[in-house]
């Protein structure tokens, strides 16, 4: 099985999965067969005004990961990861890195088909502001 990147803030399999992707502190790059890992800092992405998700996607692709396990992925990061052939598992929270990897190996978690966050601003929420009963959406232009 090829390498997996998991967003988290310390180099340990027992670290909690960081729900942020683009602005995560870093990524554990895990070999799921041996459970050996390296830690990849995400400082370059964190320093960016915009485009943190794109930068983070490049970082884990260059680290050789073919799948990412995280919380929220915005549209541009999703596009970048998909282009790089990285499988995306999102909506993870309250799991350790080890638990997330085990579930991924067991085929227990679904691959994402579309981004679950609109956020530029950091955390984001699953489906924040989506739908909303037509409030704020629809209608023609006024001018």
């Amino acid at each position: 099985m090829s390498k997996i990147a998991i967003s988290c803030d310390e180099p340990s399999l027992d670290a909690q999965v960081d729900p942020r992707f683009g602005r995560a502190a870093g990524f554990l790059i895990v070999d799921p067969d041996t459970m050996t890992f390296t830690y990849q800092e995400n400082g370059q992405a964190q320093a960016m005004a915009r485009g943190a998700g794109i930068q983070a996607a490049e970082t884990i692709i260059r680290a050789g990961a073919r799948a990412v396990l995280t919380g929220y992925v915005g549209p541009k990061a999703f596009q970048a990861l998909s282009a790089g052939g990285v499988q995306i598992v999102q909506d993870l929270a309250n799991l350790t890195v080890r638990q997330a990897v085990e579930r991924y190996k067991a085929g227990d978690i679904a691959l994402a088909q579309e981004p679950n966050s609109q956020a530029h601003g950091g955390g984001g929420r699953p489906g924040a502001g989506m739908g909303g009963g037509g409030r704020g959406g629809g209608g023609g232009r006024w001018r």
Partner: peptide, 20 residues
């Protein structure tokens, strides 16, 4: 106020944020 309201409402729609 009215002109700029239309523009900010368009922006909210663009980013799918509900507004009042």
């Amino acid at each position: 106020g009215r002109h700029d309201l239309a523009r900010i409402v368009d922006l909210c729609a663009h980013f799918k944020v509900p507004a009042g």
